[in-house]
Design a protein around this nucleic acid. Structure first.
Lengths: 337, 337
DNA sequence: TTGTACGCGTTATCAC
DNA sequence: GTGATAACGCGTACAA
């Protein structure tokens, strides 16, 4: 008994996938004829076509896409690599990519790096080793020169959210700087002069961008920034002289709100956050935020990637996704005088 | 000039990937020797090995994993199909799968169905056509008999969150029923007798499970449920006789809170939600919720899947992920008398 | 130690 | 219309 192609189970083979060859034998035709029928190519008599189709149904044949793609040289798959695909924003971004990918009949590989450059490299290289047609990367803080040879070898690559280091490639960024600028200008328009920035690790890209936007707005209003305003912590917030604070992340906004509530100053310090909350409109006063649609980033990235796969040439492009201010009340708390 | 393998660009080939054959030619050895070096197999002189390695570096060779996997018959990849990978819970679930997959050196394909059975089928079949080793599916409301032949053909399959219809396969579910029961019991313990259920479409699995849990708790307390309590809408909530309400989703909880706030009854009706919020502890009174870790579901699913890939046999298993009650105050609003 | 021949499942070429 | 036969890039048995 030949078990090499799977184990028998009643009348069916378990673990065995019929191939075109099997179908050809069964239908009494040549391999190529089966291929023609499967691919809807012309040049097959209706009679033989139905014979082949019957054999296909009988055997439960399904074309091995891997083999086909090996032959054709494309994989019809792209990869998305990010810090953490469990993060809600990243997931939404991923979804944006997927929507565009589907329109192109492309499948999507996904992988998380946890901000570890080694893991990014391992992931990226195992994807290019599978010859994905394209790669979308939310890069780790490291550098990405290991990708240069891959890109040169033909793997189209787009970076998102953070710009690549030592690589020239299409990139989609978020206008964090403009968003922060708008938020802080909003606070200034409501009379605030002493405005804090609670932003996180300035070694990272986003906090740096946000701080620049903050500085832009302050400078435009002719306000001089005290160092202590930009090195706030949530704990020190209530005791600080600032009458308003711009928070660089959901976590920072949440801690700011909690710290103010604990100090009973919730309605005395205006809080604006970067990143929206599900209940931001419910809390009192409604939390004003600057936000953007991560799906836009994904769609934009895919919009850059797929034309490249279709042969579009030209220098690396850079797209910026806008942010928008959602005023909900917290930003309108007037400055005390 | 031969352009068949890519276009020249200075001294490098663009779009051309060197193969083992190219490396072999360059190093002046046989194909198999290259294969041995690449795979770290014994039986190669250090001298030839270094010659080969030099050729590899010169050419920038990287093994074509697709070809290798075609040969070995495995893809070292699994797929995850869900309603919407942009959804935060689904993304967290996905992340749980990925973490286990990485331990097994497996890559992950992901795809969203938007609850469309056709799309689920198309996605699942294009994944099995690529011969993914395994499939984890958060099934659409339809039936999934199209998968039977795929499973029989050797694609290990695990269902998550919702049970499959017409398919016998490993499944990981969430104990929504137990969670709802615990939540409603919590309300009853605080003196509530007229408790509402705001749960959504009872044609769907989760709302049905939650309603059963609700009914369990009410029955255990000997309380008779009025039909109007279980057919609430957020709009009618404030005007209804219920003194507490169990909400079946974040969206329902949010609308309930908003409706109560609009009617000025926030602190008169106890609200418990299914699914946690980032700011649930910040709002007053803190929102009590029943929740679970979607990552647990993913890890459990992967924990069922990978042993199957390693040949584990046996009947389909069913795992249940527990929920837990996070009491934050809203649930403790005492029943008015 | 190294190489040859063949197969994985498909598509592509070019006969018949 | 149909069918051998060669390729895609790699692994494996077996021979040299």
């Amino acid at each position: 008994m030949n078990l090499s192609r799977g184990m028998r189970n009643g009348s069916h083979l378990v673990g065995a996938r019929p191939t075109m060859k099997d179908v050809a034998t069964r239908a009494g035709v040549a391999l190529k004829t089966v291929s023609r029928v499967v691919n809807g190519e012309p040049g097959v008599t209706p009679a033989t076509a139905t014979r082949v189709r019957h054999a296909i149904d009988d055997l439960g044949f399904r074309r091995n896409e891997s083999a086909r793609l090996l032959r054709t040289g494309r994989t019809s798959a792209v990869g998305f690599i990010a810090d953490d695909l469990g993060d809600a924003d990243t997931a939404a971004l991923c979804r944006g990519i997927e929507d565009v990918a589907r329109e192109h009949d492309m499948l999507l590989f996904t992988g998380s790096t946890d901000s570890n450059p080694d893991r990014e490299q391992r992931l990226a290289l195992s994807l290019t080793a599978r010859r994905v047609d394209g790669l979308i990367i939310l890069p780790t803080p490291g550098e990405h020169s290991y990708l240069v040879s891959e890109i040169k070898a033909g793997t189209a690559t787009v970076f998102v959210v953070r710009p690549p280091v030592l690589v020239d490639a299409d990139t989609v960024l978020v206008d964090e700087r403009g968003g922060a600028r708008e938020a802080v200008a909003h606070l200034i328009a409501h009379g605030h002069r002493q405005i804090g920035f609670l932003g996180g690790d300035l070694g990272r890209y986003r906090p740096r961008q946000l701080l620049q936007g903050y500085a832009d707005a302050m400078a435009e209003a002719g306000l001089v920034v005290d160092d202590s305003w930009t090195t706030l912590t949530a704990q020190r917030l209530a005791g600080s002289p600032v009458t308003a604070v711009f928070c660089g992340s959901r976590q920072h906004a949440a801690s700011a709100l909690r710290a103010l509530a604990a100090a009973g100053r919730t309605d005395r310090v205006a809080v604006i956050g970067f990143g929206d909350f599900e209940l931001a409109d419910y809390i009192r006063p409604g939390l004003t935020v600057v936000t953007y649609d991560p799906g836009d980033v994904g769609r934009a990235a895919a919009g850059l990637l797929f034309p490249r796969l279709e042969g579009e040439d030209g220098p690396a492009r850079r797209v910026q996704v806008p942010t928008r201010l959602i005023a909900r009340g917290s930003g309108e708390i007037p400055a005390p005088r």
